[in-house]
Amino acid sequence: MEKRVIFKGWALPLALLLPQLVITGVFFFWPAGQAVYQSFLREDAFGLSRQFVGLENFADVLTDPTWLDALWRSGFFSASVAFLALSVALFLAVQADKHIRGAATYKTLLIWPYAVAPAIAAVLWLFMFHPNIGLFGRMLNAAGIPWNYKLNGDQAMLLVILASAWKQVSYNFIFFLAGLQSIPKSVLEAAAIDGARPARRFWTVVFPLLSPTAFFLLVVNLVYAFFDTFGVIHALTQGGPGKATETLIYRVYTDGVMNLNLGSSAAQSVILMVLVIALTMVQFRYIERKVHY
């Protein structure tokens, strides 16, 4: 889509574009290029010399069993967060979309967690599940279930999944609600007259019509779980205990910032970039198709 009527000149528009382009260039393309460049280099331990090593960094990363573990862990973590956050949000959105008293209040009360930073969400969950000071942590221990996410890797994973999903539900809720409201009321009424009970109406009419929204959210949630949950993990478990909650993005951080292994960190960044671009491409392809719906 293009405008038919436009203003003349090229100096003004370029001046208007300049800030955006400069910032994008300096803080986006330059570092992205640097990442690609560094991923082909290796520095010695003292940072004195660099040499070109081709794809060796990639080969090292992709054959490193701890990295592959982190990859698998990230996959499990992301899938769990996405599934949990999507299903809870969908369930709540369907309930809140019904014509009931106080629907608007419920909506407001379910929307606000969007404003909570992932790191703060983690802190709130820490307050609940800390083995010594957390209400539920102590209850579990009192009930004879040894609970200490600082020692037990599975419990740590469970906690970061719960905190991450908790924070994402409100986002999904808003989109599912918008999706539900865009389904024409008469179509649902037609299904009711055709004899479909609420459950059947949901699975045969509502859910198929929501699937574009659900797919869009799936991609967004996966990207969120892969990258934005750094704060949750950093605040709650620092990737531990051991490496039990070390996801790919956390690994980039530890290798690059803590261990100063720049070549490997850069290679990991490039792999992640490819991953995000692939996810985004899938999404655009899908959005293009859904336009016809």
Binding site: S186, V187, E189, A190, V205, P208
Partner: peptide, 8 residues
């Protein structure tokens, strides 16, 4: 009035 056909 809007026919309310199932679009999918």
């Amino acid at each position: 009035q809007s026919y309310a056909l199932y679009p999918h």
